[in-house]
Write a protein that binds this DNA or RNA. Structure first.
Lengths: 341, 341
DNA sequence: ACGGTCTACTAGCGCGCTCTAGGACTATGC
DNA sequence: GCATAGTCCTAGAGCGCGCTAGTAGACCGT
């Protein structure tokens, strides 16, 4: 090994070592590393120099222990969810800005949400961002007493926790407005079953339809947030061709893609024969060969707000829970157009 | 608040509190929680009881500090990568089996791989799994001296680290064997540029073609691992319809989907007019309306092996680096069939 | 009575850091 | 001269836990 010096894995340098090397006390090194006043420029440089030479890195575990604060925010995510990925992209820089560290814990088949949350609590997270949680309110209330919990994408009223979510009704309304303005009247909604947000979207669909005087055209098909469910709903529509709607609004992009696919297989063209809109503005929707009209939920802003809400709750525990509704934005692409005739 | 007792966020119960409540010493509580011999059944029960009543949870930071071991393995992931999601699914249970904790750190636009790794090192990870890394060998060597590094999906020879990856050549060979057996001779490869694994796949394609006596039919189109790149390559093929191949093997699923889409738009049917195969067996490939023949890289096994390799290196630092090649498996779906005529 | 060997437990140091209290030294005012 | 203030630094007490060394008591055999 052509390496100079300590090629050992064990016995990493500590503050003590740095202090000895720089010829100062351990406390002074701590001071310098925490960027606190009370050390001369010259000494600071010596300390940094010594640290660099030793390859010193502060021990997070010890820091956490020593300050009773950990300055860590845990995030429960689902790896496969691209919306979560967008949120995480926003969460990291927002947390760094406020001087917090981020810990990710994934749910997956074989690792439920509770396990993911427990792991984070074990790491003494002061804040806990739950992305698209499906936890029961009792548990959230319980966890909310141990950390500043912020569910994202779902509200937990009466749990005493802040939350961040999209203003579903506004997004849905934009979709229906868009379709109605194009001249559509028969607009069917394929819903998302019991997934977070689905109930709100379903309700908002009904409201928006009524607002356009289309109450008689309200039609909701049971669905889920999967391609298969979307395709199945489309099959249901295709079973009675005489009553085909001119537009379908699916509760999320994946379902919309299933709908699209089923129609195309049945020989219908989009948006010529039928318009389709989704929800989420996922990467899928953006693919050029899909080019789906959908609703962007502004994950950037949601992520940022979630971090801020958590930090606010951490640093002032007496501040009550806050509810942040982020305005979504309609993204018009190629799957919606005027109805035929 | 209709809650009984300590609704405070600060001042979480410690081992001391549990000990006092159970009427034993702190050391005994520690013993019980570590599942070590030396405590009677009755006392164990009392301790657990007291802990439950107080809502006690061991402090990970303190544990890490006290044993000089942290028993933490950090994982660098890219959230949007579904293959990484599959790996993580396998990593969690494998780590738990061996008594290790998992910490996830995501790369994202605005957070490069080094930052993700540094964050993990700050948390004193003993092991470091790098999923699909793009780091330079010098850095990997450097980090390898501080933790047991295991790159997954890419080899770092001469860096002194173990690695886990798919046996690319075997996967590619299976694809070409499959296509050749169906009767294809004009098999074009759309490569993946400089992405990890692409060079191996390109080379393996050439070798496999020669093995089938198809050296004269070798044809590689420059690509990338995106739908757009796949579509572009397909356009290139479509430009000269008299020399259309009968099959296309893309370097990953996303590119394959781009190829598929471009062909379908051009009025060609799959697999009737042309067969298409991908690589990865991503969720996309599994969608019923895509139904892509592809190669499964066995993420389950790769994740498991990666954890084992890291633990092996941690617990016996003198064990040399090991290279684990995981056999991939061809998944035949609906986009490949006998060539027309 | 003695030592010996169990089992069931406790005392207390140290992990690497933060942070309060205070010390040493110089500069300034009167 | 003395007090006052400011600057740069150090001592040392924890943070919550793991773990080694050791103790008390029970039981055994002689």
């Amino acid at each position: 090994m052509a390496e100079g010096g300590n090629g050992r894995r064990r016995g990493k340098p500590t503050m003590e070592d740095v202090a000895a090397k720089a010829g100062v006390s351990r406390a002074l090194v701590s001071l310098v590393f925490r960027d606190q006043p009370g050390a001369s420029e010259a000494t600071r440089d010596r300390v940094y120099q010594a640290a660099a030479e030793l390859g010193y890195r502060p021990d997070t575990a010890a820091q956490m222990l020593a300050r009773s604060r950990t300055r860590v925010i845990g995030v429960m995510v689902t790896m496969r969810n691209t919306f979560h990925a967008d949120l995480v992209d926003a969460i990291y820089p927002a947390a760094e800005d406020l001087g917090y560290d981020i810990l990710l814990s994934a749910t997956s088949p074989g690792r439920d949400e509770r396990q993911a949350v427990e792991a984070l609590l074990g790491h003494r997270c002061e804040g806990l961002l739950l992305l698209g949680p499906n936890l029961d309110p009792e548990y959230v209330t319980h966890v909310g007493r141990q950390a500043a919990v912020v569910p994202v994408g779902r509200r937990y009223p009466d749990c005493g926790v802040s939350s961040v979510h999209a203003a579903e009704s506004k997004g849905v309304r934009q979709v229906i407005d868009h379709l109605a303005e194009l001249g559509h009247r028969d607009i069917v909604h394929v819903d998302g079953g019991d997934r977070p947000g689905s109930a709100e979207r379903r309700k908002a669909y009904r409201t928006a339809m009524r607002r356009h005087g289309l109450a008689d055209h309200i039609r909701v098909l049971a669905g889920k947030h999967t391609e298969a469910a979307g395709a199945e709903a489309a099959q249901q529509l295709l079973a009675d061709r005489t009553h085909l709607p001119t537009a379908v609004f699916a509760s999320n992009d994946r379902a919309a893609i299933g709908v699209l696919d089923a129609f195309q297989r049945a020989g219908l063209s989009t948006p010529g024969d039928i318009s389709v809109a989704g929800y989420d503005d996922s990467l899928l929707a953006q693919l050029s060969h899909i080019d789906l009209t959908t609703v962007n939920q502004n994950p950037q802003r949601q992520g940022e707000l979630a971090v801020r809400a958590a930090v606010a709750a951490i640093e002032d525990p007496d501040s009550g829970p806050q509810d942040h509704a982020v305005d979504p934005k309609l993204v018009i692409r190629g799957t919606t157009a005027q109805p035929r005739g």
